[in-house]
């Protein structure tokens, strides 16, 4: 329903997520390279800058119970999230719910294993390129679809057999794109609130 009848609304909505993340990045992203220039030009006192830095770098100690449980749960959560995303056109679920589940799995990983391990694979560049790729794919798919529809041209996308995974035209691809955007957004919100840097 949301990816075909109201596809334009869902595109607008992914952009709402994107623009909210950009605004949170504007507010809370603290770039270490420019920290010296920033604290001179703004009127934050030294005490406040020190407090903010302490807040950012505070990391929970390695908790053995949490790490044991996370080793078991995080792969399960991620696989379940991917299952929900891929089955969006056949059963309840879809991009948004699956993306939220995967985002929660990544946040659990960050909390259990500390900042260094996640910084190895999820940096600012990762976020920007994944969002860019997902939103552009959505944009191109839907441009083709709307252009064909409005000009009454024949659309050449195979529809498949209802009930199978590779069916219903573009909806599977759009679900994956939306799932990527939501996962990155959830993780970015958490990381920005937690430590101000990726």
């Amino acid at each position: 329903m949301i990816l075909d009848y109201r596809a334009f609304d869902t595109f607008g909505e992914s952009n709402v997520l994107f623009v909210a993340t950009i605004t949170v990045l504007v507010l809370l992203h603290f770039n270490k390279k420019q920290s010296k220039a920033v604290s001179e030009t703004q009127e934050i006192s030294k005490r406040q800058a020190k407090e903010a830095a302490l807040d950012r770098s505070f990391e929970p100690k390695n908790d053995p119970i949490l790490q044991c449980v996370a080793k078991f749960l995080v792969p399960l959560i991620l696989i379940f999230g991917i299952y929900v995303v891929l089955n969006g056109h056949l059963s309840p679920g879809g991009g948004f719910s699956g993306g939220a589940i995967m985002g929660a799995g990544l946040i659990l990983y960050l909390n259990a294993f500390g900042f260094e391990k996640t910084e190895r694979f999820f940096t600012e560049k990762t976020y920007k390129w994944i969002s860019f790729a997902a939103l552009t794919t959505y944009c191109l798919c839907k441009t083709y679809s709307f252009y064909c529809g409005a000009n009454h041209l024949e659309s050449h996308i195979p529809l498949g057999i209802p009930g199978h995974i590779l069916s219903s035209g573009l909806i599977l691809i759009l679900n994956i794109c939306v799932g990527c955007v939501v996962t990155c957004t959830m993780y970015t919100f958490y990381v920005m609130f937690r430590k101000g840097d990726f």
């Binding site: 109201r6 709402v16 507010l27 809370l28 948004f96």
Partner: peptide, 18 residues
């Protein structure tokens, strides 16, 4: 759609509060 919009503006308001 509405839930996603609500989440986004809540995140924005919370970062302003921080």
């Amino acid at each position: 759609t509405g839930i996603v919009v609500s989440v986004s503006v809540s995140a924005l308001m919370l970062s302003l509060t921080i």
